[in-house]
C-alpha cells in the first residue's frame, strides 16, 4: 500500500528528500492540468507546478498534518493561478454577491436536454469549450471536483471558501455548462469541428 501524502510529508520533514519526490510524481500532472486549464498557458502552468512544490517544501514545517495536505497543495497552486490571472484579467475571481445562495434550491425542468443525445466525441468537444467559457471561480470548482476528485470539504479548504459557497459555485457551474451545451448556444469553430 503506497504511503499517504501526510506520511510522505512526515518522511520529508525527517530528512528524506525522496518522499518529496514521490509527492512531486503524484501531483505534478494534476497541478499542471489545473493551471494549464485556468491559465491557458503551458509555460505558466509549468512554472506554477514548480513553484507549488518549492513552496510546499519551504512551508513543510508549518503544515498542520492533522488536515489532509492535498487541498493545501491545490491551494498553493490555485493562489498562484489567481495571482497570475489577476495580473492578466482583473476581477475574474470576484466573489458572488449576496444572491449567490439564492435561487439554487429550485426544481429543474424535467424534459430531456438536447446535449444528452450528443455523441461522446462531440460532447467532449463541447464540454471542453463550455468549461473554457466558465468564470474562473466556477472553472476551478469543476476542475477540483471532477478532474481531481476533491470532496466538497477539500475544495472548501483548497479555495478557502465556505462549504455552502462551494455547493453554490458547483451548482451554478453545472447549470452554466448545461446551458452552454445546448446546440443552439454553440457558435465557436471548435464546436462546429466537433460536430463534423
Amino acid at each position: 500500500m503506497p504511503p499517504t501524502d501526510e506520511q510522505l510529508l512526515i518522511q520529508f520533514k525527517q530528512g528524506d528528500a525522496r518522499a518529496l519526490h514521490s509527492l512531486i510524481e503524484r501531483y505534478t500532472t494534476p497541478i499542471y492540468n489545473l493551471a494549464r486549464r485556468l491559465l491557458r498557458d503551458s509555460m505558466e502552468a509549468e512554472n506554477v507546478a514548480q513553484e507549488t512544490f518549492l513552496r510546499l517544501m519551504l512551508s513543510a514545517n508549518r503544515i498542520d498534518l492533522t488536515q489532509p495536505i492535498k487541498p493545501y497543495i491545490f491551494r498553493i497552486a490555485v493562489n498562484q493561478c489567481r495571482d497570475l490571472m489577476r495580473k492578466h484579467r482583473p476581477l475574474v475571481f470576484t466573489d458572488l454577491g449576496d444572491d449567490s445562495a439564492q435561487a439554487v434550491d429550485t426544481i429543474v425542468d424535467d424534459q430531456p436536454e438536447p446535449w444528452e443525445s450528443l455523441a461522446q466525441a462531440e460532447l467532449e468537444t463541447r464540454l471542453r469549450h463550455a468549461i473554457d467559457q466558465l468564470p474562473a471561480k466556477f472553472q476551478t470548482v469543476i476542475l477540483l471536483r471532477y478532474f481531481e476528485d476533491l470532496s466538497y470539504e477539500d475544495i472548501a479548504r483548497a479555495l478557502d471558501l465556505p462549504l455552502n459557497t462551494v455547493r453554490t459555485f458547483l451548482h451554478r457551474a453545472k447549470a452554466q455548462l448545461r446551458e452552454a451545451l445546448e446546440p443552439e448556444s454553440q457558435s465557436s469553430p471548435a464546436v462546429k469541428e466537433g460536430g463534423m
Binding site: 512531486i24 505534478t28 500532472t29 499542471y32 509549468e46 467532449e124 471532477y146 478532474f147 455548462l177
Partner: peptide
C-alpha cells in the same frame, strides 16, 4: 466531466521540478 481527457503534461516536467527542489 470525469472522463474528459486531461491536458498532456510534458514528460520531463516532474524531473525538472525534482531537480529544482
Amino acid at each position: 466531466l470525469q472522463i474528459l481527457p486531461r491536458e498532456r503534461t510534458p514528460t520531463d516536467l516532474a524531473a525538472r521540478i525534482r531537480a529544482a527542489v
